[in-house]
Amino acid sequence: MRAVIQRVSKASCMVDGRIVGSIGQGFVVLLGIEETDGMDDLQWLAQKIPNLRVFSDENGLMNKSLNDIQGNVLLISQFTLFAQTKKGNRPSFIRAARPDKAIPLYERMIAELTEQLGKTIATGIFGADMKVSLLNEGPVTIVMDTKDKDNH
């Protein structure tokens, strides 16, 4: 799994002209699921996201986590995070999980993050044409890949 995590003041996701998910301060998480991903990848990432310390403390240092500030998450599925661009100019998405594998993992990530945060998270709609608006704070953008979890 690959996640692009953006620290935001606010964010929303529109589908067909209506807002389907919105948050105040927190993270927009763009989540890519690869064909080889499993529950261990999901659980590792679901534990890391709420504990990522990128919010400012009283001294202006990035010492507080999403849990510390009681922040929110807007989770957006994004298969294009696994684009392969080595050959030609048209990206290949062969590494991205097919919907029959990706949807259950995406839904499980929603449940895991909801449990970790102790509140419902906002989401887009899997496979929909989404318009995501956000106000990136900092800007702070972190890329995490579960393939790196075993590399210390």
Rank of each mutant, 00 (worst) to 15 (best):
F93L: 03
P91M: 01
G38I: 03
L52I: 09
K87W: 08
R95F: 09
L42G: 04
I121H: 07
E35Q: 04
A128L: 04
S65K: 10
A46R: 07
M109T: 13
L42S: 02
D37R: 03
A102S: 07
L81C: 08
N63P: 06
L66F: 00
I69G: 05
T123W: 05
K48I: 04
M62Q: 06
A46L: 09
G127Y: 00
L74P: 00
D37W: 01
G124N: 01
N67L: 14
M39V: 15
L31N: 08
V73Q: 13
M39F: 08
F126G: 04
K119R: 14
E35T: 13
G118M: 08
G32P: 13
D57T: 00
K101W: 05
Q84V: 12
N89W: 04
D129L: 07
P91S: 07
D41E: 03
K87A: 13
P50Y: 01
L134T: 09
M130I: 00
T120S: 09
K131L: 14
L74W: 05
L42D: 03
W44Q: 10
D100L: 15
E115N: 13
L135G: 11
G124S: 04
V54T: 15
I76A: 04
P91T: 03
G88F: 09
T36G: 06
D40C: 09
A111W: 02
G127H: 05
P104W: 15
K87C: 15
T85S: 11
L31Q: 08
I49R: 03
T80V: 14
V54W: 11
T36S: 10
P50L: 02
A128S: 13
M109K: 05
P104E: 12
I33C: 13
K131A: 14
L81Y: 05
R90K: 04
L81V: 03
K86R: 12
L117N: 12
Q47S: 15
E35S: 09
E107K: 04
